[in-house]
Design a protein around this nucleic acid. Structure first.
Lengths: 200, 200
DNA sequence: TATAAACTCAGTATTACTACTTAGATTCTC
DNA sequence: GAGAATCTAAGTAGTAATACTGAGTTTATA
């Protein structure tokens, strides 16, 4: 997202904050024109941070980017005087446009692709490492990423736990993954699982 | 995403497929107007699946939604006659619009929010459960989601492994999480970690 | 300043995963 | 049909996480 926004010459990203406390500190220090922030952050809730900021620096603009469309939260945000409120689901509008274009017989290719053509960039490394996996290994990668234990995977596929362990060890080695977290990160980045189908 | 697309009356989602093989089978069975698919899928690669489909049912329209802007992949997709190619980064265009509106002194609130107002829906459960966590617990949630072992977390924070275990157990119980996968899913959904900062 | 909340640490036992190796059965391919 | 790749399974050993419990110390706040 940072890379994407940086492409816009009218924008300059001067800081990134990992929690609400840092957000307040950095805002006071750097006095930005605009803050783009989520509501759920470590240490301090986004709305609380914004309240602090608006108290100390009333003229800074704030856009909320969140998944929350709960009335209470939005009203609270409005009371605090936020300038923009973007739902994460809004960002799919581009996709909708493409769908309708295609359904009407047209074609639509991402402009960024053609731009990339001119520059001649692009690497396939990660796609290739994924190709190294066998069918069984991908199946197990998926189930493991979804939170199944080896025992459950074995039951689900009708094979021994030991076999699952073998497959899992092989795919971990092929992809150079060190733990479950990396396995999940890989699975998400390659579309083997989506965040939505993951529990919790 | 399914929920989002379903809102459009002109669209009707008649199937969802978890892998390339099922995609082929279902396409032949249901003969949809349009297929929206990723490139990375279990069992069979997206492009291979599309090749099969285009061979058997030439008139079905296909939109690729992917993170890949590699020249080779896009060219391969073009050769197969896909009708649309959407980069996942394209979908941030809506966000860009809001940013510029706000920077120019305007305000911009998601239309979906005001719609939701009329219906009066919305729940805060997950936001509240997150609030249950203490500062220390959120710190440990974050580090655990990023792949650190309890031992590493202890060293990083200068506390005993046993303390980390306690915090971890407490936060798992508070959030009703059963395993690391759910922990990660929760962390991602609440913006405690982003997929990008996760290794692999 | 009392009281609660948060943070700290450990004992004990169990379960899950990882590393490394070996090896037979099946399936695909040249 | 030979050979490779894949799928299957297990032995052994070690590491990591979880499920309980109990308990002392610090910190915030009413």
């Amino acid at each position: 997202m940072k890379a994407l926004l940086s492409e816009d010459e009218q924008l300059q990203i001067i800081a990134e904050c990992t929690d609400g406390q840092k957000l307040i500190e950095e805002t006071i220090r750097l006095k930005p024109n605009l803050i783009l922030c989520d509501l759920s952050m470590p240490k301090m809730n986004g709305l609380d941070a914004i309240r602090e900021i608006k108290k100390k620096l009333g003229d800074v603009k704030v856009i909320i980017l969140t998944i929350h469309k709960e009335k209470q939260i939005f009203e609270k945000a409005l009371q605090l005087g936020v300038n923009g409120y973007v739902l994460k689901e809004d960002i799919y509008d581009q996709l909708k446009f493409t769908i309708h274009t295609v359904l009407n017989g047209g074609k639509s290719y991402s402009a960024k692709i053609t731009e990339a053509f001119a520059i001649g960039q692009g690497q396939e490394r990660s796609e290739l490492t994924f190709e190294l996996l066998t069918r069984r290994e991908r199946e197990i990668l998926r189930l493991a990423a979804l939170g199944r234990t080896n025992r459950e995977i074995g039951e689900e596929l009708g094979i021994s736990v030991r076999t699952v362990e073998t497959h899992r060890a092989n795919l971990m080695q092929k992809l150079d993954l060190k733990n479950v977290q990396e396995l999940i990160a890989f699975a998400i980045k390659h579309g083997v699982v989506s965040i939505d189908e993951m529990e919790a």
